[in-house]
Amino acid sequence: MEKNRNRVIIASIVIGIVLVVNILPFLWLVLTSLKTRLDIFAIPPKFIFDPTLKNYVSAFTKRDFLPMFYNSLIIAVSSTLLSLVVGTLGAYSLARFKIFGDKHISFWILSTRMFPPIVLVIPFFIMATQMGLHDSRFLMVIVYTTFNLPFVVWIMRSFFEDLPFDLEKAAMVDGYSRWDAFWKVALPLSAPGLFTTAILCFIFSWNEFLFANVLTAANAKTVPVGIRGLVTSRAIEWGEIAAVGTLQVLPVLIFTFAAQRYIIRGLTLGAVKG
C-alpha cells in the first residue's frame, strides 16, 4: 500500500513536470501575442503585463491573413475529402479481399507515405510552373493528397480489419448487395475511425509548410507560409507571429481533444491501438 502511494506521488510529480515543459513554450507564445512591442523586447522577460489585442488587429488589417486562413481551410478540407473518398474504398478492398500482390500494393502505398517531401517538391515545382498551376489552390489540394491518401488507406484498413466480417455476411444473406454491405454496414460502423482519420488529414494539411512555401506565392498562400513571412531581413514581427501562431494552433487543439481517443492509433498508422 505504502509502495503504491509513493508511485502515485512520483507519477504526479513527473506528469506535472512534463505538462509544464510541454505547455510553457506554447503559453509563452500566447503571452507574447498579447504584449506590446515594448514588453516583447523587455529584459528580463515579463510574465505580468498589460495585455493588448493590437497584434491580432494588425495581423488582419495591416496584413492579409484573412485570405490566408481561407486558403488554408479550403485546401485542407478539399484534400481531406478527396483522400477520404478515394482512400476509404481502397482501404476496404485491402482489408476484406485477398488480392493478387496485395502485400506489395500495401507496402508501396506505405512507402509513398514515407516519402521525404523535399523529394517531391522539386518535380512538382517544375511541372506546376510549366502547366501554369503554380500558386493555385488546386495544385495544393493535389500535393497534399500525396501524403493524405496513403495515410487514409493505411489507417482505415486497420479500422475495417477490426470489424467482424460476419455482420456484412449477415447483411448479404438478407439480400444486401456487396456494395450495400460496405456502404450501409461496414462504413457506418467505422464512423469513429473515419472521423479521426479526417481530423488527422486536416491537421497534416493545415500545418504543412514546405510544399506551400515553394508552391504558393500570393493567391494560394497558406497560414504557415504567411507566419514565416513575418520574418524578414529588416525585422521580425514577434507580436504578430505569436498572434497568428496562436490562432493557427487553436483549431488543431480543439480537434485533437475531440479525436483524442484514436489519435495515437492514427499517428502510428493503425499499428498501436491506444
Binding site: V18, N22, N207, I227
Partner: peptide, 24 residues
Amino acid sequence: RVVRSLVLLPMIMAPIVVGLAWTY
C-alpha cells in the same frame, strides 16, 4: 483525457510555428 490531450500539444502544433516559437 484533458491531461492526455495537453501532453500531445507539442506534436500537433505546426512544426513551423514550433520552430518560430523556439527561435523567440
